[in-house]
């Protein structure tokens, strides 16, 4: 009976897997089709003219690598700054005490639930006035502030570190900043990794902020692939879209497959702690 149950579970999982992975399948198949057979009737489930032309065309139809560099620049700046800034603030919440801490921590918790898109448009209006539109300064500013969720992750980690560690260092005459920098930060590499991965993929995947803040030539790959593959009649070039999307998402999927642990622990902790 146990065996029968296990095989039912297995069958259900395989069915789910087919369902969940089939969109990837169609994406790749479309990317491998010649444009001429895109709208074939009846549909071609497998390309009759298998071709890689879409990939080379997708990369040259607009300056794909240039936009990828924009995305990468923003993502690297943002994820590095936000990770450091979040560790910095997380240390304060975990190891230090002050009047008003309860209030400040309450603010932190409530902003964790803060719907970001609500502040985005007013922020955009203010950035326009400050002349920060079409620069990468907004991402620097967002990075420097840290993210409540990442601050919380670091706080959880630092809270669980032994008190003796810090006391020994203080007796040795280290200030809090050096305690943080020399002792706590190096110990927290699992959280650093999680934070880097999460913030990198937020930035790489973000659409609305770059669409609002950046002009066409400085924008990110996410915005460009959503809007760029159109011919002079305004028709979408779907085989190029497919190839462009494959090249855009593969690095993220690979990053996930290689560094799974960081991704999963980051997501899973959010529901538990």
């Amino acid at each position: 009976m146990v065996l029968a149950r296990r095989s039912v579970v297995h069958m259900l999982l395989v069915a789910m897997l087919v369902l969940f992975l089939s969109p990837f399948g169609w994406l790749v198949i479309t990317a491998l089709k010649a444009p001429s057979e895109l709208r074939a009737v009846p549909i071609h489930w497998w390309p009759h003219h298998l071709t890689l032309d879409n990939f080379s065309q997708a990369l040259t139809f607009f300056d794909y690598l240039g936009y990828a560099r924009n995305s990468l620049t923003i993502a690297v700046i943002y994820s590095t700054l936000i990770t450091l800034a979040s560790a910095w603030a997380g240390y304060g919440f975990a190891r230090l005490d002050a009047p008003g801490k309860r209030l400040v921590f309450g603010v932190l918790l409530s902003t964790m639930m803060m719907p970001q898109i609500i502040t985005l448009i007013p922020t955009y209006l203010l950035f326009t006035r400050a002349g920060l539109v079409n620069t990468y300064v907004p991402w620097v500013l967002w990075g420097l502030c840290g993210a409540p969720y990442l601050i919380f992750l670091f706080r959880q980690f630092f809270t669980n570190m032994p008190k003796e560690l810090e006391e020994a260092a203080i007796v040795d005459g280290c200030g809090q900043i050096r305690v943080f920098w020399r002792i706590f930060l190096p110990q927290s590499w699992p959280v650093i990794a999680t934070s880097l991965i999460l913030s990198f993929s937020w930035s790489w995947g973000d659409y609305v902020a770059p669409a609002l803040l950046l002009d066409d030539d400085r924008t990110t790959l996410a915005v460009k692939i959503a809007t760029g593959y159109v011919n002079e009649h305004g028709t979408g070039l779907y085989t190029l879209v497919a190839a462009g999307v494959v090249v855009y998402i593969v690095p993220v999927l690979l990053l996930f497959l290689i560094l799974q642990r960081g991704f999963v622990s980051g997501v899973a902790t959010s529901g538990l702690k």
Binding site: A85, S86, F93, L96, T111
Partner: peptide
């Protein structure tokens, strides 16, 4: 320690005031 707490949480708090509270 109290001073240190605000040194560490200050940047975030300032960011919250400028980039979240003020736009709202």
């Amino acid at each position: 320690r109290a001073g240190a707490f605000y040194v560490f949480t200050g940047p975030w708090l300032l960011g919250f005031l400028i980039l979240t509270a003020y736009p709202l």
